[in-house]
Computed example of a mutant assay.
Amino acid sequence: MKVLVVGANGQIGKQLTHLLQDHEGYTVRAMVRKEEQAAPYQAAGIECVLANLEGSVKELADAAKNCQAVVFAAGSGGATGYDKTLLIDLDGAVKMMEAAEQASVRRFVMVSAIGAHHREYWSEEIKPYYAAKHYADRMLRQSSLTYTIIRPGGLTNNPGTGHIAAAENIRGGSIPREDVAKTILLSLDEENTFRRSFDLISGDTPISEALSSI
C-alpha cells in the first residue's frame, strides 16, 4: 500500500513517514509545501511531492495519484491566526478528501482532536480550531471514503509506550506523538477502525489490541 502523508513536515507526520518507510508492507510519499522541507526526505531516499492545501483540488489530486491511502496530519499550527485554521484545518482537509476521491484513493485517516465531536467539550481558548476539526470530521464521515478519524488528546514529546486507551468518548488526557504515529500506522489495515472515529490517549493496552477491540 502506498500512503500519502499530508503534513509530513509536522511532528507526527515526520514520525509516521519514517515508520512507513521502514515498514515492509508500505511505501510512502511525503507531501510538503517547500523545497527545503523536502530536502531531508529526499536525502533519506523518501519520495516527496510539493503541494499546498491552499491550492486547487486538482493539485492535491495530482499529489495523491497512484496512492492507496491518505493520512491527513496537517495543521495550521499555533502561531497562525484563525484565518489559517479555517483555510487549512477545515477547507484544506475537505479539499484533500475531494482530491482523494478524484484520485481514486479509498482509504483516508484523519488526525483530529480529542472531543471534537462534542461541542460541550471544546476548549474556550481554541474554540475556532475545534469547530474546524468538528466540521472537517463531519464531512469525512459523509464522504465515500473508507475513513478512520483519530482524535488524540494533548500531544507530548515523551517517548512512546506502545500502550493506549482508545474509545468513542474520553474526557481529557495526553499521549506522546510517537504513539499517535504508531496508532495511525496500525490503523491503516485494521478493518475494525474502518468508518470509525475514536478519542486517543495513553493507556494500558497495546496499540494493536486496543484498535481491534474499539
Rank of each mutant, 00 (worst) to 15 (best):
K2W: 02
L4P: 06
V6E: 00
I12Y: 00
G13D: 02
K14N: 07
T17Q: 01
L19G: 07
M31C: 07
M31I: 07
V32L: 15
I46Q: 03
L53S: 01
E54M: 13
V57K: 07
A63D: 00
C67T: 06
V70F: 10
A73W: 04
A74Y: 00
G81W: 08
L86V: 10
I88S: 01
D91A: 12
G92S: 07
G92E: 01
G92A: 11
K95Y: 10
A99M: 05
Q102E: 14
V105W: 02
V105T: 04
V109C: 06
M110H: 12
G115Y: 00
A116P: 05
A116F: 03
H117G: 08
E120F: 13
E124H: 13
E125L: 15
K127R: 15
P128R: 07
Y129M: 08
Y129R: 02
A132K: 02
H134T: 07
A136C: 13
M139G: 12
M139D: 12
L140K: 00
S143C: 13
S144V: 14
G154I: 09
G154S: 11
T156K: 05
G160L: 08
G160N: 07
T161L: 10
G162H: 05
G162L: 08
G162C: 09
H163S: 08
A165G: 09
A166Q: 00
I170S: 04
I170D: 01
S174W: 14
P176K: 03
V180K: 03
L185H: 05
F194G: 05
R195H: 11
I201Y: 06
S202E: 14
S208I: 12
A210S: 14
S212G: 15
I214T: 07
